[in-house]
């Protein structure tokens, strides 16, 4: 269960003077869906490119178990190739190729095999790119916002089928997205990057059970011990997002209330805090 799909140690990547990733150490669990979130420029794409082996790190180490496939937002398709040609191309490019898996993905979404890729809609092109990616039988599939141009219904369907693939095999998926609300129930594990560093990393259920929103009368400090992630104040009321062992089960004296948080609350809380210490 605690197998590691992807591990880094003091990883750093510098573009000229700017460190896109710095002192980044993480061990991501295998056969899970890992939600990778962070603001623009937080280092998500850099991390994925390094994991896929297409970008050399400036310092530190990366270890990946098995085959890695990276699918980015600009899909690697040849416009004049038919869908069937694209699969052939994938077969020749990869040492391992699972044609039935690629075909079954395409048939699930009714993609015509004889149509040139250039004549397909943006959503259909995404499905072809996904089919080629899955056909390569990766053990680690890195998705860098590839679902961005799908309509909400198709996004849900693709996410569902993708989670089905994770359930059926030993596939690990790293899913980077800006649509945090869609991650609820999807991500098993959360990795939050901020300014090129890991700001939060852990099992989603565990993280949710260790955070709570405390609402009460105006106060400078929350009524319990714990790491204050975010605080908001109005004239009469204070709200704290706090990391404590008991999370929403933390006993607080009235009129304070300890409320559970959603994954979205958690992510937004950490993204809004610019300068929090106590990083992982």
């Amino acid at each position: 269960m605690t197998e590691v799909a992807f591990e880094t140690q003091n990883l750093g990547k510098r573009y000229r003077k700017l460190w896109a990733l710095k002192d980044f150490s993480v061990a991501l669990p295998a056969n899970k869906v890992i939600a990778l979130v962070g603001a623009n420029g937080a280092g998500k794409s850099t991390l994925m490119s390094i994991a896929a082996g297409i970008l050399p790190p400036t310092e530190g180490e990366v270890r990946v178990g098995g085959r890695v496939v990276l699918l980015s937002q600009d899909k690697p398709l040849y416009r004049s190739f038919s869908v069937a040609d694209m699969l052939n191309f994938g077969r020749h490019l990869n040492t391992v190729w699972d044609q039935p898996r690629a075909l079954s993905w395409l048939s699930r979404f009714d993609i015509p095999l004889d149509r040139p890729c250039g004549k397909l809609s943006g959503g259909q092109q995404t499905q072809v790119a996904m089919a080629v990616a899955l056909g390569a039988r990766p053990s680690l599939l890195l998705l860098d916002e590839p679902l961005a141009n799908l309509d909400p219904v198709a996004r849900r369907e693709v996410t569902g089928e993708l989670l089905g693939e994770v359930a059926d095999s030993d596939l690990t998926v790293v899913l980077s997205t800006h649509v945090v609300a869609e991650l609820a129930g999807v991500g098993d594990h959360l990795l939050l990057l901020r300014g090129g560093r890991g700001a939060l990393d852990g099992d989603v259920e565990e993280l949710l059970s260790q955070h709570t929103r405390l609402v009460g009368p105006r106060a400078d400090q929350p009524p319990v011990d714990g790491q204050v992630v975010q605080s908001q104040h109005t004239a009469r009321q204070s709200t704290f997002l706090v990391r404590t062992l008991l999370g929403p089960e933390t006993p607080v004296a009235a009129p304070w209330q300890a409320q559970p948080v959603t994954l979205e609350d958690l992510v937004l809380g950490y993204l809004r805090t610019g300068n929090a210490e106590g990083e992982l």
Binding site: K32, V33, R156, E157, T159, G160, E161, L163, G164, V166, A167, D168, G185, V186, G187, D188, E205
Partner: peptide, 18 residues
């Protein structure tokens, strides 16, 4: 089945198992 809920609701298997 867990697989059916996973694909129809787009939630991970751990959620359904829980």
């Amino acid at each position: 089945t867990v697989r059916e809920v996973v694909t129809s609701c787009a939630v991970n298997a751990a959620t359904v198992l829980k």
